[in-house]
C-alpha cells in the first residue's frame, strides 16, 4: 500500500510527511511530524483539544484528512510564541492561572487567538460561545474566560 506524500507549511516552515488516506491531520502532525503540542481528546470534533488553523481558519485537526493539508498553511501551538516572546494569550493564561492539567490549553489558545483576530472586543458571552467547542474539565472555564478577556483588553491598548 503506497502512502501519500504531502508537502505543506507548518508554522511558516515547509514540512513533508507520508500518510494513509484515512489518517487525520492530527495523527500526521503528531505521529509523522512528532509535533505533539496538538492534543487528541476525542477524535470526533467534540472537545477542541486538537484545534489548529488551516489556511487561517480555526478547525479541529481530527476532522481534517492529512491528505487535505497538501499546499495549505497550518498553524499549531508550537508556532504561537515568537522566539522567546510569548503571545499575550499565553502570558495571560499563565498569569490568570487559566490552566490546571493543561491538556486542553493548546486548543484553547489557538481558538482564542482566532477569536481575537476576528473580534478584538468580544463580550463575555461571545467568548464563551466561541470557545464552547473547547472542553475543559478542570477549571469551570472561569479563569480561561478571564484570561481571554484580559488579553483582548490588553491588545486593544
Amino acid at each position: 500500500m503506497s502512502r501519500h506524500h504531502i508537502s505543506t507549511t507548518i508554522n511558516g516552515d515547509s514540512a513533508e510527511f507520508l500518510c494513509d488516506t484515512d489518517e487525520s491531520l492530527l495523527d500526521c502532525i503528531r505521529n509523522e511530524l512528532h509535533m505533539t503540542g496538538t492534543k487528541e481528546g476525542c477524535g470526533t470534533g467534540d472537545c477542541g483539544a486538537c484545534s489548529v488553523l488551516l489556511d487561517g481558519r480555526l478547525v479541529c485537526s481530527c476532522l481534517v484528512l492529512g491528505v487535505e493539508a497538501a499546499g495549505k498553511k497550518i498553524d499549531t501551538i508550537e508556532g504561537m510564541a515568537q522566539g522567546d516572546k510569548l503571545h499575550p494569550l499565553q502570558r495571560n493564561f499563565l498569569e490568570h492561572a487559566a490552566l490546571q492539567c493543561g491538556i486542553c490549553t493548546p486548543g484553547f489558545l489557538i481558538a482564542a487567538r482566532a477569536l481575537l483576530e476576528k473580534n478584538p472586543n468580544p463580550t463575555e458571552t461571545e467568548v464563551r460561545f466561541w470557545l464552547a467547542g473547547n472542553l475543559c474539565r478542570c477549571t469551570g472555564y472561569d479563569k480561561i474566560v478571564r484570561a481571554v478577556m484580559a488579553t483582548a483588553a490588553e491588545l486593544r491598548g
Binding site: T36, G37, K39, I77, E78, R91, F93, G102, P106
Partner: peptide, 23 residues
C-alpha cells in the same frame, strides 16, 4: 501569593509531554 506555576511555560507552548506524547 499568586505565583506563576513552574510547569506553566511548557503547557502554554505545547512542549509539555503527556501520556500519548512519548515517541
Amino acid at each position: 501569593h499568586r505565583n506563576v506555576r513552574p510547569d506553566g511555560m511548557d503547557k502554554v507552548t505545547g512542549r509539555a509531554k503527556y501520556g500519548a506524547d512519548l515517541i
